[in-house]
């Protein structure tokens, strides 16, 4: 099973070591012991959210804000699950772990890879998820160790989060001809940010809440024309 699953996860191996490392350095440079990176990678196991988590940890304790941010960043995972209901059916207790480990990268592997018939699918998905999780924990921990023990000026390293989302945005942009959903996302959020910063600076921390409502409303209002254009 390992020999079937491992080769397909190699691109993820490199990606996770690198992105995990970035997160580890970021968290360690915020003053956390490197074991925190191992802990975060094991429990949260969500690349983009962990970067946002560093941002949250550097602000005063606020559970409400943590919940809102996690919802905002990870709501997309609901839709990953939707397309895997059939695939993950009947794989037993392993399913709980497979759901836990359903990151963007694992999702893309499980979705795209053809699994030969003689392979136990449940075990294949499980092994893939375990391997990716291991790469991620390793990457984060290595980054944490570097961040803790190597002296360097880390100013600006938090830009790694921006860089990551810009690249994902670009890849999504190139994957489709219909750009209005992406533009709705950028437009609504930018609008809410500017309005809140100018008129309600006290509530600026929460600008993502109105942004999400705005995006949801726009997508609902333009459902008919958008669906027509998507099906072209």
């Amino acid at each position: 099973m390992f020999r079937v699953a491992f080769p397909k996860t190699i691109p993820i191996l490199f990606g996770y070591l690198f992105l995990g490392c970035g997160f580890g350095v970021l968290l360690a440079k915020s003053g956390y012991h490197f074991l925190w990176t191992t802990f975060t990678a094991s429990t949260v196991y969500s690349g983009s959210m962990q970067y946002v988590a560093v941002d949250l940890l550097n602000k005063p304790f606020n559970i409400f804000n943590a919940i809102i941010m996690t919802l905002a960043v990870n709501i997309r995972h609901v839709f990953y699950g939707l397309s895997l209901i059939e695939k993950y059916k009947g794989i037993g207790i392993k399913k709980i772990y497979c759901m836990f480990g359903l990151t963007d990268e694992t999702y893309s592997l499980v979705c795209s890879q053809y699994v030969p018939d003689y392979i136990d699918k449940g075990r294949y998905y499980f092994v893939t998820t375990v391997l990716n999780h291991c790469y991620w924990i390793t990457g984060c921990t290595v980054g944490g160790i570097i961040g803790q023990f190597v002296e360097f000026n880390a100013k600006g390293i938090d830009f790694v989060m921006t860089a990551l989302f810009v690249v994902i945005f670009l890849e999504q942009w190139e994957s489709t001809k219909e750009h209005s959903p992406a533009l709705i996302g950028v437009g609504c959020t930018a609008l809410c940010l500017v309005v809140f910063k100018s008129f309600l600076p006290m509530l600026a921390t929460y600008f993502l809440i109105p942004a999400m409502i705005c995006i949801f409303t726009a997508l609902t209002v333009f459902k008919a024309p958008l669906e027509r254009r998507l099906s072209k």
Partner: peptide
């Protein structure tokens, strides 16, 4: 159908939102 429609469009909007969030 509405949920599966959201599944098609929301991931794009969410990443756009996160890019703006990073630049807040």
């Amino acid at each position: 159908p509405f949920i599966s429609y959201l599944g098609k469009v929301l991931p794009f909007a969410v990443i756009g939102m996160l890019v703006v969030y990073c630049l807040k």
